[in-house]
Design a protein around this nucleic acid. Sequence first.
DNA 1: AATTTGCGAAACCGATTAGTTGCACATATA
DNA 2: TATATGTGCAACTAATCGGTTTCGCAAATT
Lengths: 110, 110
Amino acid sequence: MRRDIFQAIADPTRRAIIALIAMQAMTPNAIAEHFDTSRQSISKHLRILSECEIINSNQEGREIYYHLDIDKMKEIDKWLEQFRKIWEDRYNELDKVLENLKKNKNEPNI
Amino acid sequence: MRRDIFQAIADPTRRAIIALIAMQAMTPNAIAEHFDTSRQSISKHLRILSECEIINSNQEGREIYYHLDIDKMKEIDKWLEQFRKIWEDRYNELDKVLENLKKNKNEPNI
DNA sequence: AATTTGCGAAACCGATTAGTTGCACATATA
DNA sequence: TATATGTGCAACTAATCGGTTTCGCAAATT
């Protein structure tokens, strides 16, 4: 069973859950209230997120609070790093072009 | 058919394709040589990536060159933004704690 | 003109997915 | 103690996924 963070965030409901509990821990029931699906299906999503170690839980009585492990989100950021380098280079390149255009306003290149 | 950028990068082969063509456009055959799968399956991945508008293609004779639309990658970055804010806050918080520890080295709290 | 090459599309297949329903079990409340 | 509440898990289902095989077509090569 392939189960990494990219597969975890592929589902829109899971992305919404992640965003929802980012600021404060929540119980499955409380989370499910925000969605148009059953508590059990939310429970399944929570299990997947747990297996990916994106979320953690701590039990309080009969309630279980799930909270985001924000550090795991950095893994996506890390993968994105290689592309960020490219688009920043592009931006600088464009910057240079614009600067040259400004400088040589009256000396068009060919 | 749900088909967004998050679903596109969920598959490891597609992530590898994205990384592969990030620097230079490539043909399906050239891409397939890097993987342990058929040209046709690569073609299917390319179609999905095209539908998500992550990649573009331009035909040269009978060859088709696929290249990355780096700007689409920014959409992932944009979604991450909300979490980046959180983990940077955490970091600053930790920084403050460490600074206080240093300052009050000989004055333990409590 | 005949053949080779590069490619996409369709049909098919087993595995996986996201959801449902029905249950079991522990904790809280009456 | 009996009931209500919060939860996870298993079985099932329709849809989707990633892959293969086969095909057709256009461009290059002979």
